[in-house]
Design a protein around this nucleic acid. Structure first.
Lengths: 240, 240
DNA sequence: CCGCACACGTGAGTC
DNA sequence: TGACTCACGTGTGCG
């Protein structure tokens, strides 16, 4: 079966998509190149074939060139199928028909990815409950990079005490970090601070560790002074 | 500038993507078709042009066919640019270089969309279930602003009782808040209400606090009447 | 008829 | 050298 005519295109795509006929995976197994050279698609297309020149196992320059061209043609076809199969997967993933254009489909995909991205980040921000365990999280990602400056998202969850915030502010000041946004939530004597800070231009990614250590020592100070039974500290650093 | 050679391809894509040069939007404005017919791409390609047959405003069959072919060629080019610009947007959205293949890029997109989809649904489910702690959340952001009116997202989680909803409705009515959407979930005698409300035009951002306080008093009434042991109330206000 | 979207084969480029 | 990707122009079918 050749998917050349338009009637069988959708069927063909369906088969490819559902693995009922095989298509190369991306960037692997691509050497499986002449799997269908002996099947039913040996239609004569090139004039040279019509004029009797054998292209099978031909070492002559024309034969080699023709074989290369055939390989090329088939490889290109497989490449198209690969791309289209992914597009069809996306069609199935989004709320859209199987008949939407490639461009419109991709536009929807772009929009959806953006939506989901900020949705998850918003929801992550909502997840600011103070938990029962002490916890430090410092997170930095490329998404947080803003015109050259590095931006962190840091979270600190511990027992509340009156001079926690001043200490925190002092730490940020000493590290030359500028607070962009801060959230504070308290629950039953415990507190969770989530703050987004921007570093100076000359800061490197190692500032994440400085901040991390400073927060850790702050938390240890709190625990030792209060003789807290809460010994375990969840300590996370995420660099995405 | 024509993007024919491979050196300028990336630059061209960059310009298209950032809107520095225009490309048709999907499925609209596609009638803008011959915008570059007088630019530098009037290279002679067809033998008929070389043999002196004018293709400009030619009503002869050859002229018409040639003009159609030219239109077709340019339209196809625009289609390609449209698709590629979206692919480049996706490249910028995902953690990948600008040099990843189309197929691999699309594979990553498929994977990412799947991930984000189930992530958000999982979190959304978690947000709907009533939790064990009493909780009030009032959230307002610029995203919730709708043609001038302020829109809140408020969440209330507490012990269920029969006259909770009437009380809630009364509060919203007294504050002149119009309910746009509401979700109610009950589980083991506990209830969670999430509702989106819109304020009147004359409301300010302080209405958030009114609502917050009203809900708090509502919750305290419930607790005092039921002699609930659940004293701790998570009380959050986020203004993004 | 024309506009539109697609698959196709091919030349050119990169590694 | 070949294996691979890409943009291109073209043929074709649909509305």
């Amino acid at each position: 079966m050749q998917p050349g005519n338009h009637q069988s295109q959708e069927l063909y795509r369906f088969l490819v998509q559902n693995g009922l006929i095989s298509v190369n995976n991306d960037h692997q197994l691509s050497a499986m190149q002449s799997f269908c050279s002996s099947s039913s698609n040996n239609y004569s297309y090139y004039p040279l074939e019509l004029s009797g020149v054998s292209t099978e196992h031909d070492a002559s320059p024309q034969g080699r060139a023709l074989a290369a061209l055939k390989n090329h043609k088939e490889a290109e076809k497989r490449r198209r199928e690969r791309i289209n199969s992914h597009l069809d997967k996306l069609r199935g993933l989004l709320p859209c028909n199987s008949k939407t254009d490639k461009a419109s489909l991709l536009a929807k995909v772009v929009q959806r990815v953006k939506e989901l991205k900020q949705q998850t980040s918003e929801i992550a921000e909502l997840e600011t409950f103070p938990s029962e365990t002490d916890e430090i999280t410092v997170l930095s990602s490329n998404d947080y990079t803003n015109d050259g400056r590095i931006v962190f998202k840091a979270s600190l969850c511990c027992e509340d005490r009156s001079d926690l915030l001043p200490d925190l502010i002092e730490i940020l000041k000493s590290l030359h970090l500028k607070t962009i946004k801060a959230e504070i939530a308290t629950l039953g004597g415990r507190i969770r601070n989530v703050f987004i800070v921007a570093a100076d231009k000359d800061h490197t990614i190692e500032s994440v560790n400085f901040l991390q250590n400073a927060l850790k020592s702050l938390l240890e100070r709190s625990n030792s002074s209060e003789r807290s039974k809460r010994r375990r500290v969840l300590d996370r650093t995420l660099v995405l």
